[in-house]
Amino acid sequence: MIGIVNYGAGNIFSLTSALDRLKLNYGMINTESDFDQYSHIIIPGVGHAGAAMEKLRQSGLADVIPSITKPVLGICVGMQLLTAHSQEGDAVLTNIIPVRTLLFDKKLGIKIPHMGWNNIEIKENPLFEGIENQTQFYFVHSYFIEYNSIFGIATADYGLKYAAAIQRDNFFGVQFHPEKSGQAGERLLLNFSNLKS
């Protein structure tokens, strides 16, 4: 069963709706002891990364997350929280995956936020099983995670090549919104639920 880290950063109705459509069971993680009840953990999040990190700390869950050994999936800002630092609010984050979250540079001739459907270059990974390379996912963000060949499992190109998905051991993160990315996004959520601990 999937546990959703419920720390108050943004709307999770779309996520729980997607899990309902996929007939995946889930519950909310409000306190440290709740982690034990679930086999898979999702960290959602929209909005400001610095503010989200602050909420995660206040919830008392921030210190526990790095020690989790079950599969963890961070979505959008939830993914950014796994990184070391974000330029958004100059925020120190969990540093579970030692990469940085940076602001898109409009000098690259791009519009900010990056909003819409973008194709991704996929490395072979169980999270993307059954999803064709170059499939498009729905993105909406102004900050991005720098590409790193060790932790990057998918990249997107928007002014520059950056990390669309990252992994370190049992920790996964996706910058796009699988719950809003049509059938491909639903497949990804299903793949995540099938990852072995």
Binding site: F13, S14, S17, A18, D20, R21, Y138, V140, H177, E179, K180, S181, G182, Q183, G185, E186
Partner: peptide, 11 residues
Amino acid sequence: VKSVARQLNIP
């Protein structure tokens, strides 16, 4: 909005 969000997998 709730009914739409329950069914729709696009933004």
